[in-house]
Simulated assay, not measured.
Amino acid sequence: MRVYLPCTLPALARAVEAGELGPAPLTGYAVTPALTEWYASGDTEELEYVALTEAARASLRMLAADRADGVAAAPRRVVVAAEVPDGSASSGADLEERARVRLGAAVPMGKVAAVHIDDHYAAADIEAAVGALPASDDGDDDARFTVDGAEAHELMWYATQEIPDLLRSQDGQT
């Protein structure tokens, strides 16, 4: 089963050093029965894109949390795509997040299939979205528009062998 795990560049560096994404439990996003039922007309590729988009939203929140904790993190959303055994992810009944799953074990880096990350040109919009999150959560429509604007940027795909280069670069751009 393909699972999309929200991440940040500092968290990815820690995962590489540890050899796994964790600790468990981990929140991820995948093609769940609830997502398939809700998005009845979509094929597997479209459903995986929905799950990836949900993980990118969660990555934005992780980036904001890192910043609040004083962690220097480049304004890039990061999503790690991993293959986990069927049945290792459990989904809840939350209708707001139909793609959300919970993993009960850490994910070894050897199970990572790819990394998706914002290109450097998205930095200003991602930075603005991080700053607008609190007002957006309070119902401010202008702030919500700013946060939604981050989704206008497609995440770039990187093979696992490119992860060290991503981490070596000062701000996560190649």
Rank of each mutant, 00 (worst) to 15 (best):
R61L: 14
L167V: 05
A122E: 04
S88L: 09
A89R: 03
V31T: 05
A11I: 01
G70I: 06
L12H: 04
A11P: 00
A56P: 10
R77K: 13
R98T: 06
A34S: 07
A11T: 00
A15F: 14
L167T: 08
T36G: 14
D69K: 12
G149K: 03
V130L: 06
A123D: 09
E37S: 12
A58L: 04
E151R: 11
E46W: 12
A99M: 05
T53R: 15
V78R: 11
V79L: 12
D138F: 09
R14D: 15
A135D: 15
A65G: 14
V80N: 00
V80W: 02
D86G: 11
T8D: 02
L103N: 11
E154C: 10
G104V: 00
V115H: 07
G172C: 08
L63R: 03
R67G: 08
A73R: 04
L12D: 06
A89T: 00
M62L: 15
P33A: 07
D165C: 00
V80L: 02
A15K: 10
Q170M: 06
D165Y: 04
E83N: 10
D165G: 02
A11V: 04
R102F: 00
A82L: 11
G70Q: 09
M109F: 15
H116C: 10
A114V: 06
D138P: 01
L60V: 05
P75I: 00
R14E: 15
A11C: 00
E54H: 15
A11G: 03
D142V: 10
Y121W: 02
